[in-house]
């Protein structure tokens, strides 16, 4: 077990880039090739992809620039500038084989980002954009595990689909760590600020963090809501337990929840259409 933990940590140290969906990369590329595209347009599209968002935040927080606290995509893009963002996008790598689970993970992350934004705005929290970004990135550890173990991980999850066991549990049973911890390591190693790394690390156990607990709680609730809505295909399909700490910390109740669900379902239609568009591009390419 300890071997697996070390393997993941070493793998992260060696990981210079992470793959993402061909569809999103080709969409971004066509935006980049159009010289009239604005930074705002690029930011919108980048914010739909956990991998490219993470890479942009990593670059903005890298020691060569000397900024320490860049936690939103829009700020990262302002500081890096159009040309650097463009070349980073052009150097994106894609998944060689597209499994349904990869698209599912992508949809889930995107949906969680949207849900977190709705929750944060409804609760009038500070730093909504940071919270949505943390939610977008919350499962980035799964990309690492998928990349390192390939088929093995895929099989494990597939065999569990019927039973519905949560992926973090399966991961801990088999590897002695889970995607939240792996994601937390990645976030730290990539110098992402704590506002992001803490919610990523603790979205399955908000009790265990003393800092940024509100943000971790929103990310947890966003994760739960997206599962509850049945939004994404593949991967975890069952709703996990709601952590009482998160519920209480955010002061949730039935009527707030009902408003959030209403707004979320409305927004998810657009997200679904966007996802189908991306998926259609993937189909055309493969």
């Amino acid at each position: 077990m300890e071997d697996f933990r070390n393997d993941f940590r070493n793998f992260i140290l060696d990981t210079r880039t992470l793959p993402t969906l061909p569809g999103i990369v080709s969409k971004l590329n066509s935006l980049v090739e159009n010289s009239k595209s604005s930074l705002q347009e690029m930011a919108r599209l980048v914010s739909s992809d956990q991998v490219i968002s993470a890479r942009i935040l990593r670059l903005a927080n890298s020691p060569s620039y000397g900024f320490y606290r860049v936690s939103t995509i829009s700020n990262a893009m302002i500081l890096l500038g159009v040309d650097v963002v463009k070349s980073l996008i052009l150097s994106s790598s894609i998944f060689e084989i597209m499994e349904n689970s990869i698209l599912g993970l992508w949809e889930h992350s995107l949906g969680a980002g949207v849900a977190a934004n709705i929750i944060a705005k409804r609760l009038k929290l500070q730093e909504c954009e940071e919270i949505s970004t943390a939610a977008l990135l919350h499962d980035i550890g799964k990309v690492i595990i998928r990349l390192k173990l390939e088929e093995e991980y895929e099989m494990l999850l597939r065999n569990n689909e019927e039973k519905g066991t949560a992926s973090d549990l399966i991961e801990r049973q088999n590897f002695g760590t889970d995607h939240a911890e792996v994601g937390g390591w990645l976030a730290q190693n990539w110098n992402l600020p704590e506002k992001l790394s803490v919610p990523i690390r603790f979205h399955h156990n908000v009790d265990e963090t003393e800092i940024h607990q509100v943000k971790a709680s929103v990310v947890h609730m966003a994760d739960v809501l997206i599962r509850a809505s049945g939004f994404s295909r593949g991967g975890d399909t069952c709703v996990p337990r709601i952590q009482p700490t998160a519920w209480n910390r955010l002061g949730l109740n039935d009527s707030i929840l009902s408003e959030i669900v209403e707004e979320l379902e409305d927004k998810l239609v657009d997200v679904k259409n966007f996802s189908m568009e991306i998926h259609a591009t993937d189909d055309r390419q493969t």
Binding site: R16, T17, R55, R58, L59, S62, S64, V84, S87, L88, L90, S91, S92
Partner: peptide, 12 residues
Amino acid sequence: IATLLGFAYTDP
């Protein structure tokens, strides 16, 4: 070229 520039920016 694309990967070279990406890496040069990420880790000069």
